[in-house]
Design a protein around this nucleic acid. Structure first.
Lengths: 339, 339
DNA sequence: CTGAAAGCGCTAACAG
DNA sequence: CTGTTAGCGCTTTCAG
């Protein structure tokens, strides 16, 4: 591999000049520049990123932190496209992506490994609903540039998230618009941010239709299919016309419970989910749901992070981004088209 | 951040000695060693990997190359657990994982970016059935350490793969064992290695039962659900009793085609798939299929790569690993238990 | 067993 | 506009 020095010699200039050309710095004689460029080309020279990293203190590597729990849970449908979005966006800006799993309890090992690994300029942390982590706040306190995907109330790091509240409102309003009035809902754990947000959206919708919230029609579950099933069994006693379920996974459980009770979806009970997981379109009946722009989320997370990395003053701009969701109408709500 | 120099001063030794301690080199006075260790601890010193990388020419970063096509196709169910396996195994050995997508055509950009990026000591390439790539062979020719996941006949790089042939044979023999005789099969593109291997396994099974292969019962498709559906429609005319479908994704398509024709699975036609994607257990009826040890595949790929990286002589050992598969009996084959 | 010295390949003031 | 001079933080001969 050719080095800067080789190029400098070949071009008959100093290494500093070559460096200037490579980094596109102004103030190099055009003629010299082309001479250098030719030498670079002939020697097939590439700057050595490690050496550059040592000199500049910037590696152009960003980390992606993934709680190990996520990998196996409902967010499975979330992580791959997110990662793809991140990697694409990063590549587009000349950054590399380094992956780091960490356990919920942020033990010393994973801490040392993922961060003081010292390679990363900053990182994007996937904040699952399932973690009560100690690593992230610590990193942030140390001034390590961090962007979270998902809201994490205990931290004021820049974040990207879907507008859960608006999405839930849209879902619920859809149910109301097509005529349902006695609405139930199955929520996730109410001590987590995401279920809270989605529930607010649900209430927003009811409120906009002047319908009071009936506590008996609100059942909490744990975001799993089984949880959705159990919750639905309970909800059945209240005879709702339609149910907004906070996640597709739970909605599928609900579907089973309804069917087990000898009822039909959507004729007896209409259902709307959230997330648009791949399975949503495959169950019978296909689920009406709220789609998240997952890949875009990844893109935006990168933008946010690079913004922080490259303009260390700009920290006021662009914090806490919220991306819009999209209603996907399928059969489970009982309205095949609503244009 | 404390540096080597700080530690050396605090311990009253030279930087060389500290370096020796850190790297666990023999030949350091135990007493000196503990003194150094204490200083390291007090200063909370961590070696700076970039500096170390510059000095040693090894970064302890391994790459994972993913063809962009994979991210959206059937291997979606494959990639996340694989990646998890890779990252875990790498972390266990003190390596970091860098992700790199590349397009099928290995254009200059992605080439430059992913490889001459110069960060990686070596890489694991996910060889999808869908790529005809030029990047990998080039890298290999340049002596870049590479391990492939999946077989890639044009290359003799070390690889890990599932034993597709044996798995297909097991699946087919299961069908035969429970009494089916007129077997059809839906294959992937026959010019790709994986479909070829699986088809060989299918023929192996028939042969072991003394049944001739009937060309009319072999239909090729493109590994998509739609492809499976179309293929099945065609196969229906031949009235097979049972069908071995080379992938679960296609099997789900086949399922739909059978149902659309007013027939039942498994009563009218039995089905066995391959891959055990998450959806396999969720469709109706649940799919009997062949499970791959995906995460283990990731682990082994790392082992293989590190073996090459750390013992540059050993290249004869461990090449072309094949991992066993497992038959998962569910309802679609018509035999709920076969012990 | 330990230290001195010379880099690894690049960037970044500072002169000129 | 260009070259000189110092490093970035660590490893690695080579002496001692």
């Amino acid at each position: 591999m050719a080095t800067l020095k080789d190029v400098a010699e070949a071009a008959g200039v100093s290494r500093a000049t070559v460096s200037r050309v490579i980094n596109g710095q102004a103030g190099v004689n055009p003629e010299t520049r082309t001479r250098v460029l030719r030498a670079i080309d002939q020697l097939n020279y590439r700057p050595h990123p490690v050496a550059r990293g040592l000199a500049t203190k910037r590696t152009r590597i960003i980390g992606v932190f993934v709680p190990t729990t996520v990998t196996r849970l409902f967010l499975d449908h979330f992580f791959p496209p997110l990662l793809q979005g991140v990697v694409q966006a990063a590549a587009g800006r000349g950054y590399n992506v380094m992956l780091s799993l960490f356990s919920d309890e942020g033990d010393r090992d994973s801490y040392a490994h993922s961060v003081h690994n010292g390679y990363m300029d900053g990182a994007i942390a996937v904040v699952s609903a399932l973690m009560s982590n100690v690593l992230l706040p610590r990193l942030q306190a140390e001034g390590f540039p961090l962007v979270t995907v998902g809201r994490w109330p205990a931290m004021d790091a820049p974040s990207v998230d879907v507008d859960n509240r608006a999405g839930a409102r849209t879902a619920t309003e859809h149910l109301l618009r097509i005529g349902h009035r006695r609405l139930g809902t199955i929520t996730g754990p109410r001590d987590l941010p995401m279920p809270q947000d989605r529930h607010q959206g649900f209430e927003d919708a009811l409120r906009s239709y002047g319908i009071p919230v009936d506590r008996r029609l609100v059942v909490e579950a744990d975001l799993t299919e089984l949880g959705g099933m159990v919750a639905m069994q309970r909800l059945l006693e209240e005879k709702p016309e339609a149910v907004f379920v906070q996640s597709d996974t739970m909605a599928i459980g609900a579907l089973k419970a309804i069917r087990a009770a000898g009822l039909r979806v959507p004729q007896d009970i209409a259902l709307v989910g959230f997330d648009d997981i791949p399975l949503a379109s495959l169950v019978e009946p296909p689920l009406t749901t709220i789609r998240q722009p997952i890949q875009l989320l990844g893109h935006m997370a990168v933008e946010l992070l690079l913004d922080v990395l490259e303009n260390p003053g700009n920290k006021n701009a662009h914090r806490q981004l919220q991306l819009p969701t999209e209603l996907v109408v399928r059969a489970s709500c009982g309205a095949l088209r609503t244009r």
